[in-house]
């Protein structure tokens, strides 16, 4: 009985039908990465605070034993570690070795510590999952692949993403999460103040 009650909080909050829920969530995630600035809705995960359902769903869809993960101080809680380990098996790693990093923008900074890939393998770059309080198609101007004319997104900062774009085709890629919403910002996007 006691064992049950200690395990239950871990088990809860995952997908009830992983193949179908992952598939639907991935489609939204893919659209977000393919169309920077477009806000998509994803759900299915109910992780322990402070992780948002959107970031939790991203984790369930993308993380496993092969993806080293760094939790920024804002999100490095025993409950969240246990939940992520139970549901994804992702090993925890230092920031510079991580393929994925989760945290608030402030806690993730300085972002130049993350892997940006190598000239031969630019894909070996980190994906940041940035928790925001809200996400809106408003703010700095975005142009580049995936954007017809221009888009806008409520980014937490401009300079860091401009510096990241300078590294292209290297650089990290970013998802922003708020509640059940996500938006993507690949390294290819050009960010300018409006």
């Amino acid at each position: 009985m006691t064992l049950q009650s200690t395990i239950k909080p871990l088990e809860s909050g995952g997908f009830s039908n992983p193949p179908q829920q992952s598939a639907r969530a991935f489609r939204a995630i893919m659209q977000a990465m393919a169309r920077p600035g477009q806000v998509e809705k994803i759900s299915g995960a109910t992780p322990p605070a402070p992780l948002s359902p959107a970031a939790g769903t991203l984790a369930l869809v993308l993380l496993d034993q092969t993806t080293p993960l760094w939790l920024a101080p804002s999100h490095d809680t025993p409950e969240l570690r246990a939940w992520l380990t139970f549901h994804t098996g992702a090993p925890f790693a230092p920031a510079h070795e991580a393929l994925f990093a989760i945290g608030t923008w402030a806690a993730l900074n300085p972002v130049d510590r993350f892997a940006i890939g190598t000239p031969e393998y630019p894909d070996r770059a980190a994906t940041l999952i940035v928790e925001l309080t809200a996400l809106a198609q408003d703010g700095p101007r975005l142009t580049g692949p995936g954007i017809r004319h221009e888009a806008q997104l409520s980014l937490p900062e401009i300079a860091a993403f401009q510096a990241n774009r300078q590294l292209y085709p290297l650089g990290f890629d970013t998802f922003f999460a708020a509640g059940e919403q996500i938006a993507g910002l690949p390294r290819s996007t050009i960010v300018e103040a409006r």
Binding site: A23, L62, D123
Partner: peptide
Amino acid sequence: YNFAYLDEQTKRMLRRAILKALAVPGYQVP
């Protein structure tokens, strides 16, 4: 068979590769 034949871990691997491919248009992700 699992939905869409492949197991979930394989699909996760493919999905991560697809996202990186979208982030760097034209680059071939292994």
